Simulated assay, not measured.
Amino acid sequence: MTKAQARQLVVCVNNDGYAASLEKRKIYVALRDAAAEKHGMFRIVDESGEDYLYPRTLFRSIALPLAVRRAVLAA
């Protein structure tokens, strides 16, 4: 798995209980974590710049054109 395959882009659709850590409608990087996914969680790089587990229900996966995806991941 390449570094790009190990990350996916998601958008926060609900931050109830996590308003200090997540912004609604913001795009986040979700790191692949098989153990977390088995428990219905995403490993998200949040506002602190660190990665933490959050319920998958707070996010929706998004697909972006390749050039936009690269730009978002590089930012």
Rank of each mutant, 00 (worst) to 15 (best):
L22R: 02
A19K: 04
V11C: 08
L9W: 13
E23S: 14
V29R: 03
G49A: 03
A30V: 03
V68A: 13
A75R: 08
R69C: 12
D46N: 11
M41A: 04
V45D: 02
L64Y: 15
R56L: 04
S61R: 15
D16N: 09
A35S: 09
S21I: 01
P55I: 07
A35P: 00
N15H: 10
A19E: 15
Y52F: 11
V29N: 00
E50Q: 03
I44M: 07
V72H: 09
C12G: 05
R70Q: 15
Q5C: 01
Y52G: 00
S48L: 04
M41G: 02
E23V: 12
R43W: 09
H39V: 01
C12Y: 09
A75S: 13
A67V: 11
R69N: 11
D33F: 03
Q5W: 07
Q8G: 00
L53P: 03
D46G: 01
F42L: 12
E47F: 12
G40C: 04
G17Y: 01
K3P: 01
A4R: 13
T2Q: 05
A74M: 11
A63Q: 14
A75D: 12
V10L: 07
R32I: 06
I44C: 05
L73P: 04
D46K: 01
V45H: 03
E50K: 00
F59Q: 09
V11D: 15
L53Q: 06
A75H: 11
Y54G: 02
A35I: 11
A67G: 08
V68I: 15
A4F: 05
A30M: 06
A71E: 15
R69M: 14
A34D: 09
A6W: 05
A36R: 04
L66Q: 14
P65Y: 14
D16A: 13
I62E: 14
R60E: 15
A35G: 02
R56P: 08
V29C: 02
R43C: 05
V29M: 00
K3F: 01
L22P: 04
R69T: 15
A67C: 11
D16R: 02
T2S: 12
R60N: 14
R56A: 11
R43K: 04
L73A: 02
Y52T: 00
R25L: 14
F59A: 10
A35K: 07
C12Q: 05
R60T: 12
P55K: 13
E47K: 12
Y28P: 06
P65K: 12
P55R: 13
A6L: 10
E23N: 13
A30N: 05
L58N: 08
E37K: 07
N15K: 07
A20I: 10
A4V: 06
Y54I: 05
A71P: 04
A4G: 00
R60A: 12
L64W: 15
M1P: 09
V10F: 07
G40P: 07
R32V: 06
L66I: 10
D33I: 10
A35V: 13
A71C: 11
F59P: 15
R70L: 14
F42K: 10
Y28C: 06
A74Q: 13
A74C: 10
Q5F: 08
K3T: 04
M41C: 05
S21L: 09
R7D: 00
Q8A: 01
I27Y: 12
A36L: 03
A20T: 14
L31F: 06
Y28S: 10
P65E: 15
I27H: 10
A71Y: 13
K3D: 01
D46I: 10
Q5M: 10
D33Y: 03
E37S: 08
P65I: 11
S21D: 11
